[in-house]
Design a protein around this nucleic acid. Structure first.
Length: 282
DNA sequence: GGAAGCTCCTGAAAGC
DNA sequence: TGCTTTCAGGAGCTTC
């Protein structure tokens, strides 16, 4: 499931390949893949044709390819989205949703493949800050040098919510999903239901530090892959799943104290934690 | 206005 | 063997 490290791996792979290229055509094979492009698949393809890509940028889990100074191709991988670079004649993937063909030397295709169709592509105007307008509410991620830790702490103190909910709220801190939230909370020794208003400044700083550490380690490993649903632009899997301390390790011993890791149903998904290292709030 | 919960979707795995 | 159910979860939307 792509979170910040996986999306950044994809961004780096794309940057080497699509910069300066011109789109010949775009084929939308599944309309749901461009559902966030409100003008529809035909308009999406029409506006992409002839556009030149000037780079690949990212905020949180969103990627976008600026097309000149006023328009961008925005991508979100959702749970199972893949952006694959294909050169030469390659058979279509079973869940190929959008094919973008380039004209320049070497030609080739950028393919958006998405089994569960939670992700998608769309075209949006670029704002004055260089962000596509629809992601103006997405906060900076903790690896961004301009991430404001003081403002993040102040927001946590203001909110009447719990710490894991806050970590997953992309308007507070971006790039964190269920896997790295659980891993960071385990490293910080915090229970997922801890009220954010109870966090001290040093506790917040430690938590953000652990989020950064987990993400950097995952990035170095090429991301986390449990199956074929996350791959880089060449179709290769990362291997950070071998380094996960709690996520997906129900009943296995905690790597710190040996207590069996617990999985708790939480918000229609799962939360993994060590019941001894991460005591529930009183 | 803020917080919580629902919904979309597909396919692997488990259960019967 | 084959059918049904459960599970995975990002983020927009709805409800309270």
């Amino acid at each position: 499931m792509p979170e910040l490290p996986e999306v950044e791996v994809v961004r780096r792979g794309l940057e080497r390949w699509v910069g300066g290229r011109t789109v010949v055509s775009a084929d939308v094979l599944h309309p749901r893949a461009v559902r966030r492009h409100l003008a529809g698949p035909v308009d999406f393809a029409d506006r992409l044709r002839g556009a030149s890509v000037s780079g690949v940028r990212r905020r949180g889990k969103y990627l976008w390819l600026p097309l000149g100074s006023e328009l961008a191709l925005l991508a979100h991988l959702g749970m199972s989205g893949q952006l694959l670079v294909k050169t030469g004649r390659m058979p279509d993937e079973k869940h190929l949703r959008v094919r973008i063909t380039f004209a320049d030397a070497g030609g080739g295709e950028l393919r958006f493949v998405d089994q569960r169709t939670f992700g998608g592509l769309s075209l949006h105007p670029l704002g004055a800050d260089g962000l596509p307008d629809v992601i103006g509410h997405i906060a900076r991620d903790p690896l961004d040098p301009e991430f404001d830790e003081d403002a993040f702490h102040a927001a946590l103190r203001r909110r009447r919510t719990t710490v894991k909910r806050a970590l997953l709220d992309q308007s507070l801190i971006s790039g964190v999903g269920n896997i790295y939230a659980d891993e960071s909370l385990w490293r910080a020794g915090l229970h997922f239901d801890r009220p954010t208003a109870s966090l001290t400044r040093p506790r917040t700083a430690a938590l953000v530090g652990h989020v950064r550490d987990v993400m950097r380690a995952a990035l170095a490993a090429g991301g986390t892959s449990f199956d074929s649903l996350y791959v880089n632009v060449n179709g290769e899997s990362g291997y950070f799943d071998r380094s996960l301390d709690v996520y997906g390790r129900e009943s296995e011993p905690c790597r710190r104290c040996g207590t069996p890791v617990r999985r708790t149903p939480w918000m229609n998904r799962s939360s993994y934690h060590c019941p001894r290292c991460q005591r529930p709030p009183r």
